[in-house]
Amino acid sequence: MLAIDIVGLLISICLVSIRYPHYAFMAAMVNVLGQIITAVLFTGNVEKFITAGVFSSAEVTNLGGLKTILFTFSGPITNFLLSKMAGGVEFVSTANIVNPFAVLKHPLAVINLRFAVVSFLLGLCQLL
């Protein structure tokens, strides 16, 4: 089952990028897609996915210790890889990387990097 939490998506868009909401929404979809692909590769039994941007959660059974950790961080890793493939993060100042209101030359790369960092931190809290 796949559920979409609109409130979580809106809060995620506000956290990641208010100026480019379409890129933030795409980053959320890339995150969930990375988790779905990882669950399929690890042959986990997918019970449900709740897509809520950086607050997304999943209930997957039949995964062991290391596979659970890899599954939890597969979404942020997917966002980070997309950010590196898109390029352009090197040419953005640190203040603009953190600022969700900033005008960006390469918004796809920066927003996926922001999304990866916030999603990683929330995933780390979820594991603990």
Rank of each mutant, 00 (worst) to 15 (best):
M1I: 08
A3C: 05
D5C: 07
V7S: 09
L9R: 04
L10R: 00
I11L: 15
I13F: 01
I13P: 00
L15M: 11
V16R: 00
S17D: 12
S17T: 03
I18H: 11
I18Q: 13
I18F: 15
I18V: 14
R19P: 08
Y23W: 13
A24M: 09
M26H: 11
A27P: 06
M29V: 10
M29S: 14
V30Q: 12
V32L: 12
L33P: 03
G34C: 04
G34A: 11
G34M: 03
I37Y: 10
V40C: 08
V40D: 08
V40M: 07
F42W: 15
T43Y: 14
G44I: 00
G44D: 02
N45R: 15
V46R: 02
K48C: 09
K48N: 10
K48M: 14
T51M: 15
A52Y: 07
G53L: 00
G53Q: 00
F55V: 01
S57K: 02
S57W: 03
S57V: 02
A58R: 00
A58P: 01
A58V: 11
T61L: 08
N62S: 14
L63G: 02
L66K: 09
L66N: 14
K67G: 08
I69M: 10
I69A: 15
F71S: 01
T72M: 13
F73K: 02
S74C: 04
G75H: 01
P76F: 13
N79T: 08
L82E: 09
S83C: 09
K84A: 14
M85N: 11
M85T: 13
A86L: 09
G88K: 03
V89W: 11
E90S: 12
F91I: 10
F91N: 13
F91P: 05
S93F: 06
T94C: 05
T94W: 13
T94L: 12
A95Q: 14
A95S: 15
A95H: 06
N96H: 06
I97L: 07
V98S: 10
P100I: 03
F101W: 05
V103N: 07
V103S: 06
K105T: 11
H106E: 07
P107W: 06
V110T: 06
I111K: 01
A116N: 04
S119L: 06
L121Q: 09
L121W: 11
L122K: 04
L124I: 09
L124K: 10
Q126T: 15
L127N: 06
